[in-house]
């Protein structure tokens, strides 16, 4: 297979991952944190696809499908938690959940 060298694909995945991570760490709005988490997951998925393309193997795409389902499940749980958080604290600020401090 020819085309873009793998490093480009992996570089993009890494950039996306870091962006997502920064989003999680920096944003306080829990919805944006969830979005950033999605970005990170997808970055990992991209890396799988790129690697699969490089080795001509379908496993990469299989892994991406798994990540998709995991992400869907995670979003479902995450949104439910966000909703509860909003109900109880009246905000979507993640730090408002500090009451859980041990």
């Amino acid at each position: 297979m020819t085309g873009l060298p793998m490093i480009w694909g992996l570089g993009l995945a890494a950039i996306l991952f870091v962006l997502g991570l920064l989003g999680v760490l920096v944003r306080r709005n829990i919805l944006f944190m969830l979005v950033s988490l999605e970005v990170m997951l997808n970055a990992a998925g991209l890396a799988f696809v790129v690697a699969g393309a490089r080795w001509g193997d379908a496993d990469g795409q299989v892994m991406f499908l798994i990540i998709l389902t995991v992400a869907a499940a995670e979003v479902a749980v995450g949104l439910a938690l966000a909703l509860q958080l909003f109900r109880r604290t009246g905000s979507v600020d993640a730090d408002a959940a500090m009451r859980l401090r041990g």
Binding site: L21, V24, L25, V26, R28, M33, A94, D95, A97, M98, R99, L100, R101, G102
Partner: peptide
């Protein structure tokens, strides 16, 4: 154990 989710992350 601060309770800040972003701190844990």
């Amino acid at each position: 154990q601060t309770g800040r989710v972003r701190w844990y992350a």
